[in-house]
């Protein structure tokens, strides 16, 4: 561990400056009231847990306080890409 995480704004910083935010691209539902209990529970409680590339959210909490997304390999900890909120998930080989 002790990753060097490249904040899209501040550049590489020690992981201790960051706050982990779980899986990326899990949007707050447009209209929660329209969802069944099961659909709502899926939003609340279900997340992917892949071995390999994982798009996840990080916040540079001890720095610029920006949230961003990272593509991290959960097996090797390599961060293949970081991208700002709103940007599409980059395609990696």
């Amino acid at each position: 561990m002790m990753l060097l995480i490249p904040c899209p704004w501040c550049g590489p910083r020690d992981e201790a400056e960051f706050h982990y935010g779980g899986q990326a691209h899990v949007a707050y539902p447009e209209n929660p009231a329209a969802l069944s209990d099961e659909e709502w529970a899926r939003y609340l409680f279900f997340r992917d847990n892949p071995k390999g590339a994982f798009a996840e959210r990080w916040s540079h909490s001890a720095g610029c306080r920006r949230w961003f997304n990272a593509l991290r390999d959960t097996a090797t900890n390599e961060i293949h890409a970081v991208y700002r909120v709103g940007e599409p998930r980059p395609v990696t080989s």
């Binding site: 501040c10 910083r13 201790a16 400056e17 001890a62 720095g63 610029c64």
Partner: peptide
Amino acid sequence: CAQTMLARAQ
């Protein structure tokens, strides 16, 4: 300039 941690203080 930088915002960072010094010891355990931001």
